[in-house]
């Protein structure tokens, strides 16, 4: 694969140049939807941009040494990993893209949550540590469901290649897997009802308690990019392609925004689960899905 294509994909589309405004748009849609659910007008369109620029202009972290270095590194890693994940998402399935597969994409989508946890432990704040532990147990349980669903999708299509996964018409196993992935997204985005790791009424801001200034701005951006990457991942595996690039892009964007609105509505309509309840929720669904997966594997063998 060509180096120039790769660089263009990382920096222009769907990389940095496109992804950052899109992430702000998604953050805006999330906040606006929650505001509408509460019968409010909500923030102006540019609010995530204002927040980002304001945070860039704040006094930075004053920590030195390894701790300061690591605390500055985690959000930067998160943003770069998510941009790489975005470059992999097969909006227009073609052979000319990145030669990555589903496993690489899942790894890249999973790393930011790991960095988030490490940020809490690195900050040495007691609230950060509690938040990180909650994030760890939640990620352990939601990933069980997530990975089972991803396996189900890959096995039903007999491939791990993203460009091939995106092409064929969706099968029942694919729909079930995608529904399970959508069920995992609130935990991955730390949305209600699975927002225990950043529950400000209990543990201030969780792992991000000690962050300020530009590092916090990068965390905000990473959150928007996570929205973009996860909704893009689900939608790119779900929607049927028309063959016309402009129509495909339009349908893709519309479905992504619809997914954001749906998840934000659920977040606005629910209260926060305690950590043991959220863990139990995901283990139950994982067991159910694993049983369905095994049965279908036996029944539709060959």
């Amino acid at each position: 694969m060509q180096v120039t294509t790769a660089i263009l994909r990382l920096l222009i589309f769907p990389g940095l140049f496109f992804a950052v405004p899109a992430a702000w748009l998604f953050l805006y849609i999330e906040r606006k939807t929650i505001a509408q659910m509460q019968q409010r007008i909500g923030p102006p369109l540019l609010q995530p941009f204002y927040d980002f620029v304001k945070l860039l202009g704040k006094e930075p972290l004053k920590l030195g040494g390894i701790q300061g270095l690591l605390m500055r590194a985690w959000p930067a890693f998160s943003v770069s990993v998510l941009i790489a994940a975005l470059a992999l998402i097969p909006v227009f399935p073609s052979k000319g893209g990145f030669s990555g597969d589903l496993i690489l994409l899942i790894t890249l989508l999973e790393l930011p949550s790991m960095f988030y946890m490490l940020a809490g432990f690195t900050s040495r704040s007691i609230y950060g540590k509690v938040g990180s532990m909650r994030e760890a147990s939640l990620s352990l349980s939601s990933n069980l469901l997530f990975l089972t669903a991803v396996m189900m999708i890959a096995v039903s299509a007999h491939t791990f290649r993203l460009s091939e996964l995106a092409v064929p018409a969706a099968s029942p196993a694919r729909w079930l897997g995608l529904a399970a992935i959508v069920l995992c997204i609130p935990a991955k985005l730390r949305l209600n009802p699975f927002s225990t790791s950043s529950a400000e009424q209990e543990i201030y801001s969780g792992p991000l308690t000690e962050y300020s200034g530009s590092d916090l701005a990068l965390w905000e951006l990473a959150h928007g990019l996570e929205w973009l990457a996860l909704s893009g991942f689900v939608v790119s595996l779900a929607f049927p392609r028309t063959g016309f690039k402009i129509a495909d892009a339009g349908i893709f964007a519309f479905l992504c925004i619809a997914l954001v609105v749906l998840l934000a509505t659920v977040a606005a309509a629910t209260a926060r689960f305690t950590i043991d309840r959220s863990v139990r929720f995901y283990w139950r669904w994982s067991v159910a899905l694993a049983v369905v997966f095994l049965v279908s594997a036996v029944v539709f063998k060959g």
């Binding site: 609230y127 543990i203 201030y204 801001s205 969780g206 308690t209 000690e210 962050y211 300020s212």
Partner: peptide, 8 residues
């Protein structure tokens, strides 16, 4: 905000 470090 939950943390004084995030506040203005």
């Amino acid at each position: 905000e939950g943390s004084p470090r995030h506040a203005d």
